[in-house]
Write a protein that binds this DNA or RNA. Structure first.
Lengths: 330, 330
DNA sequence: TTGATTTACGCAAACGATTGCGGTAAATTT
DNA sequence: AAATTTACCGCAATCGTTTGCGTAAATCAA
């Protein structure tokens, strides 16, 4: 079946295309009678404006591009859910592409976005993307980019991220409050700034406010490694009484070890992590964690995008605040 | 900065737009010398074809629409990841919208898809969508729809889904093999056909091949309910020795109860579930499960879509086979 | 040398919508 | 009754590409 177009409506109503177009969008030039007729026919013929023709004419696509390392990720999908909600409210749709932490894919995705003339893009950098030239190209095209979570260092970009340092400090505070004597602190890929920030903030805070507490630091790249690291350190003579997991991935490894060794939480070992909350809720007792809400971050990112779209540039780094969620593991 | 267009290239090269267009796509009519010149300039000026103009002209958008109940869902995101991969390979991009299990949203999403003239739609029905009229509208527009996971009953649609009955039977087989005497079988929302199918297949199989095994069936709507149900039944005089969780959600509830009560798996109670594997891998020992791969399903769905796009209709219901993954909980 | 092909390119009409600029009849004002 | 305003509406250009068709020049066959 052929799609209904303005032309078709115009023909059937013996009106010009421009009149039909204006009638449909309630232009004051058009009489009420005509408007009604047009609307009636448009409805009965199920007229849907051709988004491509509109974009071609108006040069604005009403589509946002989103780049995430992986869609299948607990953090990103709540982020996506948030901007999707907001987008819908504002008449935008989302085009989501995953980089799989691969710079080539990232490049390709950006290209697709450019070709589709997206109104803006939300981007989470691939783990090891350092060349931001591609993103410059977006600016050249006047396509605003809001970076989230994994963001570039340069201040000339608009970025939103978790308050990584705050997260780590809140965790440290609670660990101190627990009266921990020996803690095992597990962090992620040391090449990522998120790991660096969290670790540095944590370490500084601990050294300053609890110098007598003995902390062991380790970087792990996966759940399995985290599990192994936990077991390794546990087998030493000096056992630790508290473990801090920087991410869900690490927490998962830790909890597997804890279950395997049938360790009592929080009696024998206290556990605290940074998470969006899903994984911590899987265990009994619920794991206490510092909340980093992808959802909140998404909302914030959207606000930034809108600001960027309307006004000029909002070159700033905004962070979503964190809070401690009591679980029962501390 | 103004975008590079064919017109711009044509002007600079003193050629016609059509020649430039043909040169860019390696049309035999154009001389090699000209092609080279055009390509060179196009590259240096960073020419990116305007997808909207192309779509307007060719009436094909190279975009697929995807409707899922929730992006933030372990099953759907692996499905999405799969079709995203395939789409990229085939030069398509994805437009993902979530229905939040709300029929109105679903309707709206379809509308956006129509307006954007997507090449096809992958749809997972909202839990309680029974009116498929909207989807008919897509067919009217010659937009193929491939339903996945939660699919309509009518045979005139193209659908892919998990082999629900098989899953349940495989689970039952393993339960029987374990020599279970009393089993607690927890299912989801009884209004969903997925719950019905799994339950029915499971029950029939058990009654036929292990009539002496005592099975208790219950439907729960959430993790919390599953947890409560588990605890309730455990407190009875006749304890069960095996528990079957139809979904991840239910498994989560069960495992929380198990942890809380410090029950030994598999010694005191065997656990088996149907899952894509992530949740089962979170526990120690790993939970044995019947695998339903969203990823596989995505691949299959894509094949169906392509077939639909090329040939005529492929009105069939394909299912992804299931297999048992040994964890250590049985 | 002449007629028939090839080669290599340009013209112009779409695709569907938006919008500035007029234009004409009716209504209003003077 | 003439002049002016108002209300409604149409014309046509435009966004950037694609593509059928036409045609000059170059090549070929005889």
């Amino acid at each position: 079946m052929t799609n209904t177009t303005l032309k078709l409506l115009a023909q059937q109503l013996q009106l010009s295309i421009s009149t039909v177009s204006r009638a449909l969008k309630d232009h004051p030039d058009i009489s009420t009678a005509t408007k009604e007729k047009v609307h009636a026919l448009a409805n009965s013929l199920d007229y849907e404006p051709n988004a491509y023709a509109i974009q071609l004419r108006t040069q604005s696509s009403k589509i946002f591009g989103v780049i995430v390392p992986a869609i299948a990720n607990l953090f990103y999908d709540s982020f996506i859910a948030a901007i999707e909600e907001e987008s819908r409210k504002n008449g935008y749709a989302l085009m989501i592409l995953q980089s799989s932490n691969n710079t080539d894919n990232e490049l390709n995705n950006l290209k697709i976005f450019r070709q589709n003339r997206v109104s803006g893009v939300f981007a989470c950098l691939s783990a090891h993307t350092h060349n931001l030239e591609v993103y410059e190209k977006m600016s050249d095209r006047a396509i605003p980019v809001v970076f989230f979570d994994i963001v570039p260092k340069d201040n000339k970009y608009t970025k939103v991220r978790m308050a990584d340092e705050r997260c780590a400090i809140i965790a440290a505070e609670n660990i101190i409050q627990r009266g921990a004597k020996r803690v095992l602190a597990l962090f992620g890929d040391p090449g990522l700034s998120i790991s660096q920030k969290r670790k540095q903030a944590f370490q500084q805070f601990m050294e300053k406010y609890a110098p007598k507490t003995h902390c062991t630091y380790e970087n792990t790249y996966s759940s399995l490694e985290a599990e192994a690291a936990f077991k390794k350190h546990l087998s030493k003579t000096q056992k630790f009484d508290t473990v801090f997991a920087m991410t869900d991935e690490i927490l998962i490894g830790v909890m597997k070890a804890i279950q395997a060794l049938n360790i009592k939480v929080p009696k024998e070992i206290g556990v605290i992590s940074i998470s969006n909350g899903f994984i911590p809720s899987l265990y009994h007792p619920n794991i206490s964690y510092v909340e980093t809400s992808g959802y909140e971050l998404g909302k914030l990112a959207f606000v930034q995008m809108l600001a960027n779209l309307k006004g000029g540039k909002t070159l700033s780094e905004l962070t979503v605040d964190a809070r401690f969620i009591e679980g029962g593991s501390m």
